[in-house]
Nucleic acid binder design. Structure first.
Lengths: 251, 251
DNA sequence: CGACTGCGTAACACTCTGTAACGAGCCCCG
DNA sequence: CGGGGCTCGTTACAGAGTGTTACGCAGTCG
């Protein structure tokens, strides 16, 4: 397959307008802001700096990361089109945000953002929902990093990625805008292990890599099973489901 | 040294009244609630259940955990005297809370709690501060689980534990209320590795175990260095410090 | 064309885990 | 008070999984 240029992923998730209702509320706050163009690799804000702005990804993918000494890097989250980041009420940013692909982002002042939310009964629940979703993701990531092996991590990543970058009109074909190092730093592995694991998944016919940045999901059901999440087939978990009557937070 | 009974750790952190000012505000909401006694090992709330209450630990230690299939457990946080948990605006609890030691806790209704905060200009920043502290801890944990080895994890844990359970009048002597399995599930390791690593730290004279649940820190400076956090001696990080002029978020 | 970058693959080294055996403290009981 | 059974923690050893290192290939850029 031909290699695509830097802009190849700008198309990934043009879904700002199609975002779910909850997001539309907060999204409207960014309506007046002019989108800025951020080239791939460029930083948007810096860990430790005063959190002056809240951002929304209009197009492209952003990584949120922390650097810890000796060249160790942790990517705590990826943000896709429509996502809002930097909205947490911390005084300083907890992460450095960098463009994975060429991006367009909107920004508004943090005080303005929080002020609008404080003044609107409609926006407050949306904001709370945003905070919740973020902490939920952080917890999920802690589970992944604590207890999952390389294969489970990668499968979880692909399942998480699918709804964000699956090409419309070509179901099963995933765009993977980030490079292997990004994936490795997100999943707490090395790029070699990422490579090996993708090869292994290909060998058992679960996925078919198509070039470096595209991947076809052959058997989504199998992929989900390989996530290592508790599923309905697990007896112990069945017990829990019966007790609590909810499957909402299961993969 | 003599082994102590179940109640030995009730003393750990009777610091509710001595809590920092920010906490006192939110703590006052629990003033009217009668403390409940929870025996060690007993659950306080369940993952997935509707989040009806917010809790404050009055005495003892609580673990917040998630169970994922096949007997795998992840402890996402420990809560000590004075700490408030379940305050996140999620509809359902993200974790099961269980008493590590015999505990006393206070609870108030979630709607009452959130209502009081919404109605008070003084409490809102305190609440935001609580949310921030929690997400910050979650991020720190993600770094730990992603990039730190067994020794760094354990040292980080001890440094984090020290201000919570260090015995007043006996500086350097830590109470460790949780058992090895709890520590392992918190740090993403096995109990054998926890044991081995403690032995290793003892061998290099950084700590001295005194029974199962007490530990003397011999060289705190060395322990901090072994955390694997970026520190002031790290050149790359020095650069970052110069650029951002803050050391607040470093170990 | 040649240097550079990103990625895949393979051999090797090492950390951590799983398993098992053992020891220490606690509880129950006579 | 002492013994047996239990839980919890420690230690040793073998093995799996992952990290490390090195190399080759393809695509990109000057």
């Amino acid at each position: 397959m031909l290699m695509l240029g830097k802009n190849a992923f700008a198309v990934a998730g043009l879904a700002v307008e199609a975002a779910p209702p909850r997001r539309l509320c907060l999204s409207s706050l960014f309506g007046t802001a002019l989108p800025e163009t951020i080239p791939a690799g460029k930083a948007i804000c810096w860990e430790g700096d005063p959190a002056g702005c809240v951002f929304q990804v209009a197009e492209g993918v952003v990584r949120l990361q922390r650097i810890i000494g000796e060249g160790r890097r942790v990517i705590t989250a990826f943000q896709y089109a429509g996502d809002i980041f930097g909205a947490f009420p911390q005084r300083n940013y907890l992460f450095t945000a960098e463009a994975v692909s060429d991006c367009r982002i909107r920004r508004i002042g943090r005080n303005l953002f929080l002020g609008e939310i404080a003044g609107s009964d409609a926006l407050r629940p949306a904001y709370m929902g945003l905070l919740c979703k973020e902490t939920e993701a952080a917890h999920e990531q802690m589970v992944l990093l604590s207890k999952k092996n390389a294969q489970e991590r990668l499968c979880s990543f692909l399942i998480e990625l699918a709804p964000r970058t699956e090409m419309s009109g070509n179901p099963g074909l995933l765009q993977i805008p980030m490079n292997r190092q990004d994936i490795a730093d997100y999943l707490g592995m090395t790029i070699e292990t990422v490579s090996r694991t993708i090869s292994k998944l290909a060998a058992i016919q679960v996925v078919v890599p198509e070039g470096r940045h595209n991947l076809r999901i052959v058997c989504r059901q199998r992929l989900k099973e390989l996530c290592g999440n508790a599923d309905a087939f697990n007896l112990e978990n069945c017990h829990r489901l019966v007790r609590h009557g909810s499957t909402a937070d299961l993969c």
